[in-house]
Amino acid sequence: MTWYALSVFFADKSDLISLNFAPRSHCFSQARVEWNDIVLNSQVCESKALVDLSAEEPSDVLFDVFGDLSFVEIAELYAACTKISGFIQKISWPLFCQRQDMQWNEKTEQLCEAVAQLPPKFLAWAHKKQASPRDLQPLMAIKDLAVVSPLLEHFESQAPSRSQGKMIIDLLVDLTLSNHDQTSLEPDKQSAWYDKLYKMRNPMTVARDKTLREDEQWPQYVQIHNQRQGDRIVKKMQILYSDNKDLSKKLGRLSEMEHL
């Protein structure tokens, strides 16, 4: 927290511009803060004192007004700042992002611009799950994000976890770039959204995994299932038994099998 020399106004100030940004979680500052005729947190009740911090470094002021922000909020703040002529150039984004534990570079800048345009339902999910720039970066491969916006809206109703959401984004991007019809990528009732997209993205592997035959003969009390673990197929064995005696008898018979 930086200590400031304060100028506090209670009277009306004309010609003030409001920054069109409100943090999704909470605003750090309880007072309304002005920086060179821009009210940074205009969502704070107008009856609150207006503090003029124009003499301060704007990246410090932004941090002290808004505190820690999620990446979605940073993107929204960046977009809001670009809308006020000349304001964005005055802010040191590398400094501001450093205080947000984030690196500012061309890649982050482009991502911020893109993320701010994504549908609100998706942004609500991404903010709630604290999605990182890395989680959202795959979207940058899509030139016209409006194409995938309807699909991204489903994140609100599907509510995937952060890691599953990240995988879904990745699959959606691949499938969109492969010219799949967007409606075919929507979630449906037949299977989980991720499973459906995974199958569409990896048809060759899914077909191969299915055709892996169980060559070996197993007794009836054993069930074998193929299961993908990373780049390999592993076999999952289930043994049906009634009690410990039955189990040791069956294990004994298994150990005598020739292919083991």
């Binding site: 592997t205 892996l212 993908r228 990373g230 780049d231 390999r232 197929i233």
Partner: peptide, 21 residues
């Protein structure tokens, strides 16, 4: 390369499925 169906190997890299490799 981007079309490839790849999966994480033990070393964390993405590779083709073991049987295809």
């Amino acid at each position: 390369v981007n079309q490839a169906e790849t999966f994480k190997g033990k070393d964390g890299k993405l590779r083709y499925s073991y049987d295809l490799r």
